[in-house]
Design a protein around this nucleic acid. Sequence first.
DNA 1: CTTGGAAAGTCAACAAGGCTGACGTAAATT
DNA 2: AATTTACGTCAGCCTTGTTGACTTTCCAAG
Lengths: 164, 164
Amino acid sequence: MAETGGGEGLLFLTDEQLRKGIEAMFFAYRGFTADPDRILEGMDYGRAHHRAIHFVHRSPGTTVSNLLMILSVTKQSLNRVLRTLIDDGLVRSEKGRVDARERHLFLTEKGLILERELSDAQRARMRAAYRAAGPAAVQGFRQVLEAMMDPDMRRQFNRLKEGG
Amino acid sequence: MAETGGGEGLLFLTDEQLRKGIEAMFFAYRGFTADPDRILEGMDYGRAHHRAIHFVHRSPGTTVSNLLMILSVTKQSLNRVLRTLIDDGLVRSEKGRVDARERHLFLTEKGLILERELSDAQRARMRAAYRAAGPAAVQGFRQVLEAMMDPDMRRQFNRLKEGG
DNA sequence: CTTGGAAAGTCAACAAGGCTGACGTAAATT
DNA sequence: AATTTACGTCAGCCTTGTTGACTTTCCAAG
């Protein structure tokens, strides 16, 4: 808990420990995406669609440029994904009332159904991991992840945490 | 620490908490790969080359099929990456002595130099995150990540932890 | 009112890195 | 001798990222 003053307290910072952490991130991230990937294969969608669906669901009415910042991709990349989701009736794009240049994005009923299926799967794995590790571990998990983000992303992350 | 028996102890398993964890993984993984990506852009290499270099360095003399299991890609994908690394003199491929069908992979001097540059950058970020979060958090981080892996990958991960 | 710039959409072309399928070769195993 | 294993390679396809150029729409400032 307290700042470890002595030498032995820093054993968790050895190169070997760090390497284990790096490999853990690598293998865990695969598990993290495995279930949604499985659901999406066969449909015409991929991980990029999942991400768009997630963040539109997360912040209904968000704009395209907002989404661009969060996802850190080019508008061409995002547009290709968004185009198919809109054409397939999963996402609704609504011209802004205050600023008509902006497009506000929402999930349709159909979109909500897929979102639910994807996030149920992903949450189930997360829940199992959380339960297995316990609440104290979860807190540590969150702390390390947050510290690992780029400052810009940490800001995005914390904005999402608070605001709707 | 102990198994939380009551209801309040399970607050960390709410959908909202799980969603935060999911988004934390998403943003953190970007940070995790950002530094090596930056180093590799401009060279003819990408994240796939980094992964190959990492695990060859990790287990010198490992075979191609071994690497295939760890990376979970097809031999065609791996071969494309390995081919360029061998041609560029970063990786050495050695015919097996006991089983001459196998190829054992090693980093050359040149390969070790790039590996060092990449892993220094990635470890620096990891170290900063670990230091900021503290040893208790790091332990929790590792526990949750390990619980999140697919069983096969967890086996790979733990095999790497022990064996050279 | 005009003009500059921001937000969005679109077309085209390209690259990385996944994938499948098919085929070949050398070496080990049966 | 026949089969299986480990590896390499050719060809082609898909997703998802990239640049660059161009248009439309619209807000806001001059």
